[in-house]
Design a protein around this nucleic acid. Structure first.
Length: 488
RNA sequence: GGCCCGUUCGUCUAUCGGUUAGGACACCAGGUUUUCAACCUGGGAAGAGGGGUUCGACUCCCCUACGGGCUGCCA
């Protein structure tokens, strides 16, 4: 079932490619979400890229929760994010870092900048700044705010709260050498002296990310391209502190099917919703990896395979749209290639996530027995369950409309004559096939005519695995009992 | 308003100056079939528009259009 060409070419490539000696890698990436809600599908992809990049190079993948916004951060959101990443199969190294917990260190760095002369005390109040902007806007201009305190004489400092502002270069340009976007040049005059420490001594995001990334040893910053402009200002902080600038990679955001920024009105935006919809994690990872990244014609692959060829340069620069049809197709390949036991385990997780009843022992046994047949005809767990209906129900089987129609008097007669002959036949696909074909021939009908009532009696519906597979999965006694029920 | 990024079939993408612009999903037609799914064969389908540079541009440069982002004592 896996498309041979893609897997074959990957195989050849891995086989023939000169293998770089896997030295101890010092790659460190991180995912740094804000705990203000569920894990967004776009964020999940960002995390996935970071994970793939680090894991593919023997590096570390760290997790940091950016919870400095006390108003909007909640522990529930943090919990949801960790659960989402865990479901997707993205494991992180070490403890989860709380940005809020590091605020003392952030303040320390801000003061060090002060000492180095790369930052200054700004006594302008938020009201003054707002007034400045309002006035500029009224004039139709949008000049950046220039604090009057940038070069003020300490003797003139009032005894009042102050914010610490970065003393950004006013001339020249800042160059972001981005692995995805290329060389991005930003003129320094378009950037203001951003605040790094608020007047209440809390750090701003711009300072906190840089300090944390530096302290955590992050070497590659892979994040959404909504941060591309921010990178220029953050790079100034690295420079101000004399720290090594990480490798930047700003990836495009994911859009909805209509090409607009992904929002609630597009339907599912939270990763947890995808789990509840029954997409397998491996398929989700495959689809998300291919969304905005490509390696030749490689389409269906495991994450282990992706790691071997994943590069930042392979990431596209244009935003990609979500396509549920392709997601489903990709998931179908993964359902089919997953081990039966693993699939059953994940199915159990799906049931819980979707709030559906758990399987009984009998149901588990039957589904496991039929898994080989089930998994090649289902793309998602709900679909698999629909086709596994015969394994979930108990006698007497209540036929739906279509099934009832297949159980006419003639068919019931055939079923009745069939049951004794199933008593002693060996319960294997081959012998069942032989005997059923025999019976069809004896009744002068094609196998299809026999399969319909059989299917109706066994499953009570018309969408099922093959009749042989069902018989094998539920066993001889249950099969005969169901056929007898229907024939009566 | 300013600055930054982007634009190849409907969608995800390949191509890194010379190809009949390739693959996948979706779609259409046919085949196979035990329902569904799968599978097989075939088909239609693309370089936003306009200028350059070049012997030759999807590919390099400029302009326009459209989409997105940033422009906070949010992250």
């Amino acid at each position: 079932m896996p498309p041979l060409p893609a897997r074959l070419s990957l195989f050849l490539e891995l086989g023939f490619r000169k293998v770089n000696a896997p030295m101890a890698s010092d790659v460190v990436t991180r995912f740094a979400p804000s705990p203000t809600g569920y894990l967004h599908i776009g964020g999940a992809r960002t995390a996935l890229f970071n994970w793939l990049y680090a894991r593919g190079r023997g590096g570390k993948f760290l997790l940091r929760i950016e919870d400095t916004d006390r108003e909007r951060s909640t522990p529930e959101a943090t919990e949801a994010i960790l659960k989402g990443l865990t479901w997707l199969g993205l494991d992180w190294d070490g403890e989860v870092v709380s940005q809020f917990a590091r605020k003392a260190r952030h303040a320390e760095v801000a003061h060090e900048m002060l000492a180095r002369g790369t930052a200054y005390r700004c006594f302008s109040t938020p009201q003054e700044i707002a007034a400045f902007r309002a006035e500029a806007e009224a004039r139709g201009s949008y000049a950046v705010f220039q604090s009057p305190w940038r070069d003020a004489d300490p003797a003139t400092w009032p005894d009042a709260p102050f914010a610490i502002r970065m003393k950004a270069p006013r001339m020249g340009e800042t160059v972001i050498d981005d692995k995805v976007q290329g060389r991005v040049v930003i003129r320094n005059e378009t950037l203001d002296d951003m605040i790094v420490l608020r007047s209440d001594n809390t750090p701003t995001y711009m300072l906190a990310v840089v300090v944390d990334d530096h302290d955590m040893g992050v070497t590659h910053v892979i994040r959404g391209d909504d941060h591309l402009n921010n990178a220029a200002r953050q790079q100034m902080v690295y420079d101000a502190m004399g720290w090594a600038v990480p490798v930047w990679a700003h990836i495009p955001l994911i859009h909805g099917p209509d090409g607009k920024k992904l929002s609630k009105r597009h339907g599912a935006t939270g990763l947890e919703e995808y789990q509840a919809m029954g997409y397998p994690a491996a398929g989700m990872r495959n689809y998300l990896t291919r969304l905005g990244w490509a390696h030749g014609d490689m389409e269906v692959f495991t994450s282990a395979e992706a790691m071997k060829v994943f590069t930042l340069e392979g990431i596209g620069r244009a935003p990609a749209r979500l396509d549920f049809k392709k997601l489903e197709n990709t998931c179908g390949h993964h359902v089919a290639m997953t081990e039966d036991a693993a699939l059953l385990h994940e199915l159990t997780g799906y049931l819980a996530a979707a709030g559906r009843p758990a399987l009984t022992a009998v149901q588990r046994d039957r589904i496991l027995a039929a898994m080989a047949a089930l998994k090649e005809r289902a793309k998602t767990f709900p679909e698999l369950l629909e086709k596994a209906k015969f394994a979930l129900i108990d006698r007497p089987v209540a036929p739906d409309e279509k099934a009832a129609a297949a159980l006419d008097a003639v068919s019931r007669g055939i079923l009745k004559s069939l049951t004794p002959r199933l008593q002693n036949v060996s319960w294997t696909k081959d012998s069942l096939e032989t005997i059923l074909n025999e019976i069809a021939a004896q009744n002068g009908i094609g196998f299809g005519k026999l399969a319909a009532p059989l299917r109706a009696a066994l499953a009570g519906c018309s969408v099922t695995p093959s009749v042989y597979d069902m018989m094998l999965a539920i066993g001889r006694d249950e099969t005969i009992a169901r056929l007898a029920d229907a024939a009566a």
